[in-house]
């Protein structure tokens, strides 16, 4: 089977004045298959966010290539949905208008996406909040709105950059289950960048460990639990074996 996205020999160098010539990641090869949930774990500064930004088309690698559906790419030319740690909602827009923002930017007919937006809102449990403003919602609710916005334009790839690390433990577990539910419903290929090993093992089909300076792929671990997974899985021996293994691969 051909991968949906293939990263081949990716090297990224930042040539800003501040971090002059810093090589963030080097020679990274990564295949992402249709419908897969791939976790990228690494310590802070390991280049995992850089890798996500390459996938998002926000950073152009100095070496290597991004291949999408067998087409070599020059910059960003497939649709991605991004969810960052902070929800980044626009406070002057209501929930529904925040969600429809990508459609406006893409220049598509907003009215055609209205029912999809309402469906996503219902799916994440925010029915009735369509016309609320972001500041009227809790942090977890805001992040759910941001998830809808990341999905509204049917991206080929959903990119999550530590999406739940600013939430409390209970809300985070709720969001894990919600995310799993939404991903399987949408059938979207997902890349989850996180430093939380438990989160990666619980949600992903495959965990890629990045480490070193500059960052390289250290190992890949296939997580053989069937989806959908239950929160109780965390308390099993098999789950903890995975966690211990991935944690070990991260290094000290």
């Amino acid at each position: 089977m051909e991968p949906l996205v293939r990263l081949h020999g990716i090297t990224v160098r930042y040539d800003g004045r501040r971090n002059g010539g810093l090589v963030a990641i080097t020679d990274v090869d990564l295949d992402i298959y249709q419908g897969e949930v791939v976790g990228i774990v690494g310590k802070s500064g390991s280049g995992k966010t850089t890798l996500l930004k390459v996938l998002a088309g926000l950073i152009r690698p100095v070496k290597g290539e991004v291949v999408f559906n067998n087409h070599k790419l020059n910059g960003n030319s497939f649709r991605v949905g991004v969810l960052f740690q902070s929800p980044l909602l626009l406070p002057w827009r209501t929930v529904i208008k925040n969600i429809l923002l990508p459609i406006e930017v893409l220049g598509e007919d907003v009215s055609k996406y209205l029912s999809r937006a309402l469906e996503l809102i219902e799916k994440v449990g925010l029915k009735g909040f369509e016309n609320s403003y972001p500041w009227e919602l809790s942090g977890g609710m805001q992040q759910r709105v941001a998830l809808c916005r990341a999905l509204i334009h049917r991206p080929s790839l959903l990119l999550l950059d530590e999406p739940f690390s600013s939430l409390d433990a209970i809300t985070r577990e709720e969001m894990w289950m919600l995310l799993q539910d939404v991903i399987s419903h949408e059938g979207c290929t997902t890349v989850l960048v996180t430093h939380d090993v438990r989160e990666a093992v619980l949600l992903c089909d495959r965990v890629v460990v990045i480490g070193g300076k500059p960052g390289r792929v250290r190992a890949e671990v296939r997580v053989d639990f069937k989806r959908p997974r239950d929160l109780k899985l965390q308390y099993t021996k098999e789950f903890n074996d995975y966690v211990v293994m991935v944690r070990g691969l991260l290094g000290d």
Binding site: K53, L58, N76, V82, P102, V105
Partner: peptide, 18 residues
Amino acid sequence: IEKELWELLMSFGATKTQ
């Protein structure tokens, strides 16, 4: 404008003018 917000908009193809 925060850098992350800028990147978010760029990720779905927004131009500087947009």
